[in-house]
Design a protein around this nucleic acid. Structure first.
Length: 483
RNA sequence: GCCCCCUUAGCUCAGUCGGUUAGAGCGACGGACUGUUAAUCCGCAGGUCCCAGGUUCAAGUCCUGGAGGGGGCGCCA
């Protein structure tokens, strides 16, 4: 066996040398040309089968999907369409693939919906492998961005004993016999007998733990799986997803916005720089897709145009109060086109309103800030009263992207113990259970801020996909935990 | 949780007003092919029209219920 090389690397390897490549057959043309893919890149290697050297039995077993090993001479391609090709000296079939039952005949153009049903095999498609590589680039880019800025990655717990995070419904974690749990005298379940000696859940956010670390290490971020037991049935929600949450001591809301905008722009640029081939493929996929749609529904920009557009200009920053004014006076609001008309300050913005602001009014990413305190979490910093603002607000920020809505939610945190305690009482958050969290405010409290990024939502945006279930290998959502 | 849409060959879909034996492309299979690029050409097979009821002389087509899938909304990242 000659030196083994990956397809990605063979394109720049020296010709007139022997190499061994291993991969899977994508197509076999003219009884002569194998398009070989090994997942290292989007492009296939053209393998030329020399009929004098390869026996008929082997050739018959070269079917779509088969795993094969080829040793041969790399030469400049004798045909158009590729620079080099490998002339096979020997071909070993590592794993046969029965074409009669193999569900991924790529020439069939299987739909994304169909591929979701065979998620265990969809890595073998160009689209899913491209998405996987872009995702890896973004994953690495996040660590690079924060490492370059001397952030410390903190592993917040996945199992949490805190049920006061307030970020949504939680999945319970227990080793108790659910059919016959130990009970207290009053009939309630006795969690003292459970594995951890108390009721526990899967985390909905690592933020509170990130705050503990930030108030000593200065700059930290968490990045890990997050679980929400909400019965959300949309193209933007998963029950299990990855969330990245930076938290920075001494940052205020404006520092927080700057960090988030810098990070998003860095990541988009990083993907553009490092995933040219995959993004070009995904872009073409979208263009082909759009051809089937009516003219009015087609997007004005291609994928890379859209990504570059996000880099070109500063995100639009405005307060909730300013947004309400824009929405109140907007044409759809006046014409009664909104399902939820904007009447007065204090209303929560629905996605139709966010979409109007991002996609129609500003036509670029928007950062909304200083939301009414009543519609935001207890830990957000309370603003000083301001003239022209109808009620109390907090230093919150939501970053809204076209097509996906909220990609980031964050805030400056309430660092003043008295104000925080008062707010917790108003919102019925049990302070006793949160004593460990409140210690940060008792001992050397300082201003700080952070945000949460839904990783799959970022991947959605960068890949131009429209359903979040297509950017995670094995999506978990209500009624589905297959594979 | 609410609203709308879809389910016909392995895949993607067509199927008119309810009317004879259910249609196409691609794939698969058989064959040809030593410069192909989703190769091409010739041939051939392939159907629980999602399921259960109902209406009708007659149901892929209409009605009711159910299942599965998709989209929108809510909740959020």
């Amino acid at each position: 066996m000659a030196k083994r090389i990956r397809v990605k690397d063979i394109f720049s390897a020296e010709t007139n040398h022997q190499y061994t490549v291993m991969g899977w057959v994508r197509t076999f043309r003219n009884n002569q040309f194998i398009a070989l893919n090994d997942g290292s890149c989007l492009a296939n290697l053209q393998v030329v089968v020399d009929l004098d050297k390869i026996d008929n039995e082997t050739i018959k077993r070269i079917t779509t999907g088969a795993g094969i090993s080829i040793t041969g001479l790399l030469i400049e391609s004798q045909g158009k369409g590729q620079t080099v090709e490998l002339v096979a000296e020997t071909i070993e079939i590592l794993g046969d693939c029965d074409p009669e039952t193999y569900p991924i005949q790529l020439k069939n153009r299987p739909s994304l919906e169909y591929l979701r049903e065979i998620a265990h095999l969809r890595f073998r498609t160009n689209a899913f492998s491209a998405i996987s590589r872009v995702k890896q680039t973004l994953f690495y880019g996040i660590h690079k961005f924060f490492n370059d800025r001397h952030f410390v990655n903190v592993h917040s717990p996945i199992i949490t004993g805190s049920d006061a995070e307030g970020a949504g419904e939680m999945f319970q974690v227990t080793t108790l016999d659910v059919n016959n749990p130990p009970r207290n005298e009053d009939g309630s379940i006795n969690y003292k007998e459970d594995f951890f000696g108390k009721a526990t859940n899967l985390t909905v956010s690592g933020q509170l733990q990130a705050e503990l670390a930030a108030l000593a290490l200065g700059r930290v971020y968490t990045f890990g799986p997050t679980f929400r037991a909400e019965k959300s049935n949309t193209t933007r929600h998963l029950a299990e997803f990855w969330m990245m949450e930076p938290e920075v001591a001494f940052n205020d809301l404006h520092d927080n916005m700057d960090l988030a905008e810098d990070m998003l722009k860095f990541l988009i640029q990083y993907a553009l720089d490092n995933c040219k081939e995959d993004l070009a493929f995904l872009e073409q996929r979208l263009i082909d897709d759009e051809k089937t749609k009516p003219q009015a529904e087609r997007s004005e920009m291609t994928l890379t145009e859209k990504l570059k557009f996000c880099l070109a200009e500063p995100f639009e920053r405005l307060t909730y109060t300013e947004a309400i004014e824009i929405l109140k006076n907007s044409t759809p609001n006046k014409k009664g086109k909104f399902q939820f008309p904007i009447e007065k300050w204090g209303a929560d913005l629905q996605s139709e309103h966010e979409r109007y602001l991002v996609e129609k009014h500003f036509k670029k990413p928007v950062i909304l800030t200083n939301y009414p305190a009543d519609i935001k979490a207890f830990y957000m910093r309370q603003d000083d009263p301001k003239e022209g603002v109808a009620g109390p607000t907090v230093s919150a920020m939501d970053i809204l992207f076209p097509g996906i809505g909220e990609i980031i939610g964050g805030s400056q945190r309430e660092e003043r113990l008295d104000k925080l305690l008062k707010r917790m009482e108003e919102m019925h958050i049990p302070a006793e259970e949160m004593s460990w969290f409140l210690d940060t405010r008792r001992y050397g409290t300082v201003p700080h801020a952070g945000f949460g990024l839904g990783f799959e939502r970022l991947v959605l945006f960068v890949t131009g996909m429209t359903n979040i279930r297509d950017v995670i290998p094995f999506p978990r959502y209500p009624g589905n935990a297959e594979f």
